[in-house]
Nucleic acid binder design. Structure first.
Length: 837
RNA sequence: GCGCGGUUAGCUCAGUUGGCUAGAGCACCUGCCUUACAAGCAGGGGGUCGCUGGUUCGAGUCCAGCACCGCGCACCA
């Protein structure tokens, strides 16, 4: 039975009431028995569980939910899981701060370790298993808070399918994919110059870099040339002078061409430095000739590789200047002792200190030309780091993306992008890749590589013959599991084995979210029904990371694009049009907004952000959304408050006119939602609904009360109910709580499982004689004029006018005449005449 | 430097293949306790559609150039 009609309906309490009911009834439960054609599958972004969700999350996740709810009402079985991205650096950093601990991978596991939050003093060192336990503990708490928020916001997720990126299934998928790609030669293990964050002491990927403007200075250095003129270069990084292995100028640069093939000396150290020509050198920059250091930036790597230069590394993984021994390769110098004395003064220092010292040494040496001139320049940072990126040679796992860029771009063209122009960002990124995708991180809370290495009799690690875990044993943790063919006691012993201690980058796991969510590889039946997925919703700032990497893995592992559609949401901006900052986002908590305005109202605001468009945070829109929700309550109560005239036929021309208009609204809103234009659809429905309330409803009110007998009353009532039903259903994706409430007053079952209205359905209610959509427009115009006259006379609208005369053209007059009784009653006129004119 | 998006009312934004007097909401002003809703309803004022030129019977819409804002990519000796 439907519920009793409340006397004074309210929004308060609807969220809790219906969230509980939906959970109890399994309203959003995914029915896996459905066929692939019936299923609509969503590759939900697993939010990073490292603190709290902010308003922007509610914004973009609502967009996805709008689509999910629409598709569900269209009859699709919606596969809509939630995932939590709990592995990775953000969690580690949060755990470090929250518990004041650091991970020592060589420490012993303490089974009953209790760590309290907070605590002053130096961080406590804990073993990797203990550290992971703390990560799991904290993310577990966060995940519960996130779920509560999502339920409150009305996401129609099937919570029984929730996954985490550190969970066992995710680890299995990630390790399996790794082994597959390794087997196909798509993943390689290489010692190579790698982007390196000295703060976190880990390799990072190109996709995780960002530019930041910082202060620096140009230093002009003179390189003595025993065989000719000295050479001057400009550099912002004089502390790398000891790592200088060459100089390069453009091959066509006449100023430097005579030097090619000569060897100059580095100042202070007196190291021989050959001069080369290379087209990457820009005659316009600095003095037109550059020093090549191993390694100052990506250009250095290119020159080093293409010119076959030696590596003279001086930056240690922790960002200090490493010790070096001059007089032995590759640290050669004319006077090794002098070089060593100079070097010892910078060794052990951090970059910044070494730079200062180096300038002093250069000044004493007389090879600093003029004074350093301060500049502001953009420098690459790891996006989560706080010191500039260094390039450090280390052994890492790489996915060979460089050789397949054209194929990725082709995959991108198989996807429908919403909005379409977002594909250009994907193309730009793929074309601009400069190196393979480094997926190994020297961190702890992540998916380990399922790899060990044999140790030679001398204890040396044999990286060339990795021992791989068997597929059936996955997931494995090589730091605790023993490789096939070995005993536990052989760990780290000569002739034994050692574990690969790295973990995968978080994107290496989340790039497999469709596979993880879809149950691959353990549940091939489910996977076949949901993959490739219908929709990937996500924000535009992670096109280069999450979107790109998912395309890569799907292409390599399944030879397909991972989804048919990618819906890219914009950002939330402050009212002053700046990107909403973390601090502000924390002041305005999502839960606070949901409580203050109601979830439907916040969703209404979110729905006004079109795909791809950055949207201002606007509480005014939430107030409007709330107003709309209240209106839906009241209008529903009014229409349903009168006894139903069961099976009544729509007979009055003006009623048919309303249905004619409704039919076009349904058709348009449906088409727009099918095309992911939810904002336009909402506006369409909303406009109709206000027209329905302010004009149609007012027009037929008296007739519905029976002013002209039963037949006309029945026609009005039937029309009101058809219109209300359609509006309630079309609002359901946007305002799920209030829509469900008003639906429950007179219908069986959830509105969210009700059929989306169709033009055919409306036409059927109208019967054999279609209405004229213009008629109601004209009637509304007349009504407006009457109201205006009364308003300008400062009269109450219910004041009775003696006579109203409407002048209209012939065809219009005929239409208006058919509404004249309703108009007379609604306009409160004793007489209404329509005259041609 | 290459590319993408934007510029319409005080604010936030619609405006489809070129076509009636350029729209909505908010804000503002005026009026109305009207039996669904005063957290409501009705009415009103408000725009040189960024600039310049072009195509056209007709341009917010199409073309060219420019300016400014935002973003992506690259460069950053």
């Amino acid at each position: 039975m439907s519920e009793a009609l409340p006397r004074k309906p309210k929004l308060e309490g609807l969220e809790q009431k219906w969230a509980e009911r939906w959970e109890a009834d399994g309203t959003y439960r995914f029915d896996r028995a459905s066929s692939r054609e019936e299923i609509y599958s969503i590759d939900t972004p697993p939010p990073t569980v490292s603190g709290s969700l902010h308003v922007g999350h509610v914004f973009s996740y609502t967009h996805t939910d709008l689509i999910a709810r629409f598709q569900r009402m269209r009859g699709r079985e919606v596969f809509y899981p939630m995932g939590w991205d709990d592995n990775g650096l953000p969690t580690e950093r949060r755990v470090q701060n929250y518990f004041n601990v650091r991970c020592d991978p060589h420490a012993q596991y303490e089974p009953d370790l209790e760590v309290e939050p907070g605590g002053d003093g130096p961080p406590r060192m804990v073993s990797r298993p203990n550290f992971v336990e703390l990560c799991l503990k904290l993310t577990g708490e966060d995940e519960q808070a996130f779920e509560d928020l999502w339920r409150r916001a009305g996401l129609s997720v099937d919570w029984s399918m929730t996954y985490t990126t550190i969970g066992e299934p995710a680890q299995r998928v990630a390790q399996l994919s790794f082994l597959d790609e390794l087997g196909k030669g798509l993943i390689v293990h290489q010692a190579a110059p790698t982007l390196w964050d000295v703060g976190f002491r880990t390799a990072v990927a190109q996709a995780e870099l960002e530019d930041r403007e910082i202060g620096g200075a140009f230093h002009r250095l003179r390189f003595p040339n025993p065989g000719g003129d000295d050479v001057e270069i400009e550099t912002t990084r004089p502390e790398l002078l000891a790592a200088c292995v060459a100089m390069v100028a453009h091959p066509d640069d006449d100023r430097y061409r005579p030097l090619f093939g000569q060897t100059v000396r580095s100042p202070v150290f007196g190291a021989p430095v050959p001069v080369h020509g290379h087209p990457l050198a820009d005659p316009e920059k600095g003095t037109g000739i550059a020093m090549v250091c191993t390694f100052g930036d990506i250009n250095d790597v290119t020159w080093w590789r293409e010119l076959g230069l030696p590596v003279r590394p001086i930056v240690a993984p922790d960002g200090t200047i490493a010790p070096a021994e001059w007089g032995s390769e590759p640290f050669t110098a004319d006077d090794p002792e002098r070089a060593q004395r100079a070097y010892d003064q910078i060794a052990g220092q951090r970059i910044e200190g070494a730079r200062k010292k180096m300038v002093e040494l250069l000044r004493e040496d007389g090879t600093l030309v003029g004074e350093p001139s301060p500049i502001k320049h953009a420098v690459k940072f790891f996006e989560k780091g706080d010191r500039p990126i260094e390039i450090v040679t280390s052994r890492q796992w790489f996915v060979r993306t460089m050789d397949y860029r054209d194929e990725f771009i082709a995959r991108g063209r198989e996807i429908d992008w919403h909005p379409p122009y977002m594909r250009a960002r994907f193309d730009d990124w793929v074309r601009g890749l400069t190196g393979n995708w480094c997926i190994s991180r020297q961190r702890f809370f992540g998916v380990p590589f399922p790899v060990w290495y044999p140790l030679g009799a001398d204890g040396e690690t044999d990286f060339e013959s990795p021992i791989l875990a068997g597929r059936e044993s996955l997931p494995v943790d090589p730091s605790t599991d023993v490789p096939p063919g070995y005993e536990a006691g052989q760990r780290d012993q000569p002739g034994g084995f050692t574990a690969d201690m790295d973990v995968m980058d978080t994107w290496a796991t989340s790039s497999l979210s469709p596979q993880i969510a879809g149950g691959h590889p353990d549940d091939p039946d489910l996977f076949a029904r949901v993959f490739p997925m219908d929709l990937r919703p996500q924000a535009h700032d992670i096109i280069r990371t999450w979107l790109f990497s998912t395309v890569v893995r799907s292409h390599f592992d399944h030879d397909t694009a991972p989804w048919r559609n990618a819906a890219i949401s914009g950002w939330i901006l402050d009212p002053d049009r700046k990107k909403m900052s973390k601090s502000k986002g924390n002041v305005v908590t999502p839960m606070g907004l949901l409580e203050q305005y109601g979830s439907d109202a916040v969703r209404y605001w979110a729905a006004n952000g079109r795909p791809g468009a950055d949207t201002a945070f606007d509480e005014g829109q939430m107030r409007i959304g709330r107003k709309l929700a209240v209106k839906l309550l009241n209008a529903s109560r009014f229409v349903l408050g009168m006894p139903a005239t069961a099976g009544g036929a729509v007979t009055e021309p003006v009623d048919l006119s309303l249905l004619a208009r409704l039919e076009t609204v349904v058709a348009a809103a449906t088409a727009q939602l099918e095309n992911y234009e939810y904002t336009a659809a909402l506006e369409r429905v909303e406009t109709f609904f206000w027209f329905f309330c302010d004009n149609y409803l007012e027009l037929v009110k008296d007739r519905r009360y029976g002013s002209r007998g039963d037949g006309p009353a029945v026609s009005a009532d039937a029309t009101l109910r058809v219109g209300l039903s359609a509006c309630q259903r079309m609002f359901a994706p946007f305002l799920p709580f209030v829509a469900e409430e008003v639906w429950s007053w007179w219908q069986e079952g959830s509105v969210h499982r009700a059929a989306w209205p169709t033009p055919e359905e409306i036409r059927e209610a109208a019967g054999p004689r279609p209405g004229d959509a213009d008629m109601l427009q004209l009637a509304a115009a007349v009504l407006r004029e009457v109201r205006k006259a009364k308003s300008e006379a400062n009269l109450p609208l219910r004041t009775s006018a003696r006579s109203v005369e409407v002048a209209a053209s012939e065809p219009h007059a005929a239409l208006i005449a058919q509404v004249s009784d309703d108009l007379r009653e609604a306009g409160v006129a004793e007489e209404l005449r329509v005259v041609p004119g």
